[in-house]
């Protein structure tokens, strides 16, 4: 089956992003296809590569980076939600004349259309977080 995953809550504040990561791994293990992973609302913090974790804790953005690049997955952060929350790539720091890009390398900044396009191509859209 083809899945699109939507992550809406921030790591640390919620378990959702970690659950989504484990779900994504399980999907691949079972031979399913992931059409796209989309980060919306506070879920965009999952794509902050400047996140640091104590040595004995999981660094979730790092884990997302590894999953996406190891499996050549398509991962997108909602640009409107991201720039409001200070998640930017080089294009955006140049556009707004600010310093400090922090977006994970394996993840792209794009619009909500990418979520809708992926959902229309998928058998299932599974959301993590949100509702609050």
């Amino acid at each position: 089956m083809k899945f699109t995953l939507l992550i809406q809550s921030a790591p640390i504040d919620s378990q959702s992003s970690a659950t989504a990561l484990r779900f994504a791994r399980a999907l691949l293990k079972k031979g399913h296809t992931i059409e796209r992973i989309f980060f919306y609302r506070s879920g965009v913090h999952s794509a902050n590569r400047l996140t640091l974790a104590p040595q004995d804790e999981t660094n979730l953005p790092q884990e997302w980076q590894r999953l996406v690049s190891d499996n050549s997955l398509d991962a997108v952060v909602c640009i409107a939600a991201a720039i409001r929350r200070g998640i930017v790539n080089q294009d955006e720091t140049a556009r707004y004349g600010i310093e400090g890009e922090n977006l994970l390398q394996a993840v792209e900044l794009s619009g909500l259309g990418q979520l809708i396009a992926a959902a229309t191509q998928s058998d299932r859209l599974v959301t993590f977080g949100g509702g609050g």
Binding site: Y40, R41, L112, G113, L115, I116, A117
Partner: peptide
């Protein structure tokens, strides 16, 4: 066919705005 469910008041968080933006984006596409 998309159904967007919102549960939050209009202010206090960005939830209502981001739900509305998502509904509009579905329509635009």
């Amino acid at each position: 066919r998309f159904l967007i469910i919102s549960r939050q008041s209009p202010y206090g968080s960005a939830a209502a705005r981001e739900a509305t933006e998502l509904a509009l984006a579905c329509a635009l596409f």
